[in-house]
Computed example of a mutant assay.
Amino acid sequence: MFFKNCIRLFSCVCLINVIGCTESEKKSGSLELTIENQLSFDREEVVSIPIEDLDGILKNTSPDNLRIKHADSTSYLPTQWVDIDLDGSPDEFLFMAKIAAKNVNTYILVADSTIAKPESKLTTYSRFVPERTDDYTWENDKIAFRTYGPTGQKEALAGVPGSTLSSGIDLWLKRTSRSVINDWYKGYQTDPMYYHRDKGEGYDPYHVGGSRGVGGIGIYENDSLIVSQNFMHYKTIAEGPLRTVFELSYDPWSPYEVQETKRISLDLGANFSKFEISLKAAKEVPNYTVGLTMHKNEGQSKIDVEDGWVRYWEKIDDAYVGEGIVMPTKEIDSAFTIVSEVPDASQIYIKAKPTEKLVYYAGFAWQKSGQVKTVEDWELILDQKAKSIASPLEVTFK
């Protein structure tokens, strides 16, 4: 019997012959689950299972002993536990699922410490970077981002040359699947231009300045955007092969005294960071608005409110970059562009309805990474992301 949209655990041990169970699995206890993709394109996504839905199979063993594989395979998949509330106990079990269009896959969960824990050659990663003022930087196998912290703000307000006053989101263009953050910042220690030159793995040619970059927020009022300054505090929640999660908090900003905490996560293989922003204002705000810079207005912009995305396609040096924001359509009030001669003021905006929790996805793809060749390729990625948000993979336990 299946109960869709509500994950329920009926069996703790393998009391009958379950398809795909080996003798070792039958002895250790196993659990079968299915994952359904209702959309018309293939999907490869990180699946998260709350630990409370695994209480039965974990009753007599440590969460570290949990393994998972496709029912038709003998190879187990890399996994990750996330302690989302940082209380010392795991909360979510992660694994990567590959599901063909309009298809259902079966997976077997096994509690068995004798099965070697698979390792991933790829990873996600994030960290605070005190050696470059105080950036916070994050990446996966496809993309990388950074934003700016309290020391940068202090120096900028004091007029220190080269400092950054911005809550915008910066991009690092990658064309390697390996982690680059530590190496690029190490090179920066002896050469401040180190990661601004492409040595074959990518570089940082992207300009944020006073703009929103890709996914910074503000309040749109009287034909202008009110924004916060740099983040003041950070909290790294998870690093791992499948997902990195962290939080950034800001001093109260705007006449509305908005208290803002960004929870940002990035999954392996994804072109988008997920932004879950907690917002509490002393006065009622008119909106929250997410921005996407158009730099010098030399690229192509497009707004698709019906499908829930905006994008910009621009040439940076000798290759094109597609940038975009995807937001659930029910949250969108309007979207529009502002073209200005003022530096960093030309942007695409998605205006969201006032809320205490704003959720959206912001990301990009670089032509030289091999992920996109044309703007149509980028629009396909945006369209599929929007559809995937609206139709999550359905997980059902037997």
Rank of each mutant, 00 (worst) to 15 (best):
V326S: 02
E306D: 09
S340T: 12
M327A: 15
A335R: 07
E331L: 14
A281F: 06
E298I: 06
V290C: 10
I303E: 13
V321L: 13
H295W: 12
V326M: 03
F336W: 09
P286R: 04
Y288V: 15
V339N: 14
W309H: 08
N287P: 09
T289R: 12
E284A: 08
A281N: 05
L279N: 08
G308E: 03
D304F: 04
E314I: 15
M294G: 08
I303P: 08
F275K: 03
F336V: 12
A319M: 05
K302Q: 09
E276Q: 14
V321D: 04
A281S: 15
I316F: 11
E306P: 00
K296P: 00
V310K: 03
M294D: 07
T329I: 15
E323L: 11
K280E: 08
A335N: 06
T337Q: 06
K296G: 00
K280N: 12
A319F: 14
N297T: 09
S334N: 14
V290E: 10
F275T: 01
E276A: 15
T337R: 00
I332C: 08
H295V: 10
K283C: 01
V290R: 01
W313A: 02
Q300W: 07
K283I: 01
N297Q: 14
K283D: 06
S278P: 00
K302E: 04
A319T: 14
Y312N: 13
F336R: 08
D307P: 00
D318G: 03
S340D: 15
V326Q: 02
G322D: 06
E314F: 10
D317P: 00
S340N: 15
Q300G: 01
N287K: 14
N287D: 10
K315A: 07
K283V: 02
V321Q: 06
E341I: 01
I338H: 00
W309M: 09
I325A: 11
T337K: 08
D333A: 13
Q300F: 10
G308A: 09
G322F: 06
K280A: 14
E331R: 11
S340Y: 13
G299H: 07
N297I: 13
R311L: 04
I332V: 06
K330H: 07
K330W: 07
P286W: 13
V310T: 11
E298W: 11
K283L: 12
V339G: 00
F336S: 05
E331T: 14
I303M: 14
T329D: 02
Y312F: 13
E276W: 09
K315Y: 01
P328F: 07
D318K: 10
E298H: 12
M327D: 01
D304S: 11
E341H: 07
D307V: 11
